[in-house]
Write a protein that binds this DNA or RNA. Structure first.
Lengths: 396, 396
DNA sequence: AAGCCTTTGTCCTGTGAGTGGAGAAAGTGG
DNA sequence: CCACTTTCTCCACTCACAGGACAAAGGCTT
């Protein structure tokens, strides 16, 4: 089953592979422009990579006024699997070595059913993608899970919303099943890596990536590297106190951000509003769908329902207050908002921006874009593919 | 005037210098144990360093059962100047290459008088230290200022409490005056570097260093490196909102942490308490000293005054709430509390600990020490010396 | 005191990494 | 057909580094 037999033998080769992956170059000459190596040394390393099969030279590019260059690219048959496990659904995608998505499946799922059931589903989705001819096998897989991960071992630790996953050897188990190397990380970190690789955060070294879905979390990128913290729980901002003596939270405290704003909280607030007779629009949707979700609130807001807009604005304000504190603390160059609730769009963004620009110091906000993520639901799987690709494209 | 003529020629030499500086080794053999080099290569690099004069070999160590080793150490005549500019006082110290303090002066000062006046004072303090025979000249200087710094250029930017310093070329000006290389950083970052080098944070890669003085700030160390943020304002937690609709702050907002707890806020609260007749102890001190400072509150608390204790506890609670949020976000391995108010000691620490351990998630706090800084008022100057030494002990 | 062991430090040679120049290969444009 | 550009290869030389042999200098045992 294992397909990718070789790994780069040194830092030069790793650098070259990443340049090819990230579209920085596609010929020997272009590679030479970006790495500080003599042409001779470059030729040696390229030849060695060609021998390993990690890259291929096929065809000639058009001339630019002189001898035509060989097209150098990553092996076209390399395939990475990106898996993004959420609280209530799972994304599985196949990418090529350039991390372009070749196929993507999304299915509803419940993490609470535990790792065994979830992985059964993930594996069948992967099999389906493979059966459709997108891949003969996988050279590596990246997995995102909605909770803290002991990163070096790839094991979730004390995940609040994933009972039954605590200590489960995700990396090892999936590596066995898939027959390829696997890396595991928090889903929010992967979203950040996705946006850094192919989204709005391209070429930004220090940024925050706030993911608002069923829960709420924050990917932290410092100096181009994801900051995971000493126990892998960095970015867990859902339980920062947003409202003194506020709503009770599942964690036992009161006033946690997540208790006041998240997909779950929003749905609950919408139901409450309906029961208090504050919104006909939402009431109608509740009757039609037999319940309310964050998406319903988004739709109602889009339809102009003032109560829905109020709910979103208030949540955005709460979130914005917390983010304002983080901006003062971390001084990022960009804040990305993503996750399931991005459907709430500009109402949400406006509320967040207002709070951040008002509460943080001018020096920190002066040139600070706060934007929605560009990749939407694919950020996670792209980040996952990036994670394993970074690993495999590093010297063994 | 310039004395240190050489810089390490490569990464090996830099590594060796830092090992010698940090007490990791003092002979060729011990160096060899810590760097992954053959004895021959090591000998070459050591010889080259000896030639440059950056290190010296003098005398023989006692035998450990075989041939005696040469004592290898950093040039004994190297001198670094560490300067820590606070809001109301300035510390200047001379260290040797191992960053041991050979002489230390502290004088009252007012940053608001501007860079020219302040540097005149700093230079005269440095001259005094030199005149006392501690140094013939300086090989480098590190400067800490109480505000954001554009680090690569060594220029303060938009510092709230330092009008007149905005954009002043501190690095260049002092380098001219002192005739040696100079590095400039935020004072809080330098405190963190000091504690990392010689204090409680030795061998901790990810920690927060909260400095509570006239203002309040936080040094952030991630992966052993200080995180300064994109505009150098990272760690500026004094203006995070701690109390919704709380006290007005000089920054224009309300409820900033700094408005509720800091040396200045504590003194103001103490005066208020006296005027409301809530503390005889503080009233007596006010009459005796003609005013109140944070130190008076500390003394009153030490004498058992309940009002003073309450003030400290409440401030500690506010600070603890903010730190709790930062701990959830950053997931550090250690939190260091330092700055002028460390005199408030365990009352303060207990309040902070209570809030953090209660509000942050168990995974983040489970093994999280929260301790007072070990170096007290010398943390800043040691950090400053460390800053310039790191610079000079890196390949040019 | 002799002999043996340990530790420290030096010397020398072989290997491989890497540079830089010469020049071949393959194209364009006049 | 010639001059010029770009791409790529080949080769000789330098330098970094490892690793072994060996010298220096001590301690311990007998």
């Amino acid at each position: 089953m294992r397909r990718m037999t070789a790994r780069p033998a040194n830092a030069h080769q790793a650098r070259l592979l990443k340049l090819l992956r990230d579209g920085g170059a596609n010929s020997r000459a272009q590679l030479g422009d970006q790495v500080d190596l003599s042409r001779s040394k470059l030729a040696v390393e390229v030849d060695r990579l060609l021998e390993t099969g990690l890259i291929v030279a096929d065809g000639l590019a058009a001339s630019r006024g002189g001898r035509r260059s060989h097209n150098i690219r990553l092996a076209p048959n390399l395939r990475f699997l990106g898996v993004d496990i959420g609280a209530t659904s799972v994304d599985v995608a196949v990418t090529n070595a350039e991390l372009e998505i070749l196929g993507h499946l999304n299915q509803p799922m419940d993490v609470r059913e535990g790792p065994v059931a979830v992985f059964e589903q993930v594996l069948s989705m992967a099999a389906k993608l493979r059966a459709s001819g997108l891949a003969e096998g996988f050279d590596g897989a990246g997995i995102g899970v909605p909770g803290p991960v002991r990163f070096p071992e790839g094991v979730p630790v004390a995940p609040p919303i994933m009972p039954g996953w605590d200590g489960f050897p995700v990396r090892e188990a999936l590596s066995q099943e898939l027959g390829c190397p696997v890396m595991v990380d928090n889903d929010v970190n992967l979203m950040a890596m996705g946006e850094m690789h192919a989204g709005v955060a391209r070429s930004v070294g220090d940024f925050l990536c706030v993911k608002i879905g069923t829960g709420i979390g924050c990917g932290i990128v410092a100096g181009g590297e994801v900051h995971r913290g000493v126990t892998g729980s960095a970015g867990d901002i859902g339980h920062i106190q947003a409202v003194p003596d506020g709503r009770p939270c599942a964690c036992g405290n009161r006033g946690c951000l997540e208790a006041h704003f998240s997909g779950a909280a929003l749905a609950r607030d919408a139901v409450e509003a309906v029961e208090q007779g504050r919104s006909e629009e939402l009431a109608a949707r509740r009757t039609a769908n037999g319940g309310l979700t964050a998406a319903d609130v988004a739709a109602a807001a889009a339809a102009g329902d003032p109560t829905a807009l109020d709910l979103i604005r208030e949540g955005g304000n709460r979130t914005g207050q917390v983010i304002a504190g983080l901006v003062s603390f971390f001084n990022p160059g960009l804040v990305v908002i993503g996750g399931g609730v991005t459907g709430l769009g500009h109402t949400l963004l406006a509320a967040i921006r207002t709070q951040v620009y008002r509460q943080s110091l001018p020096l920190a906000t002066g040139n600070l874009p706060i934007v929605l993520g560009e990749l939407g639901p694919t950020a996670g799987v792209i980040g996952a593919a990036r994670l394993i690709s970074d690993h495999l494209f590093s010297p063994a």
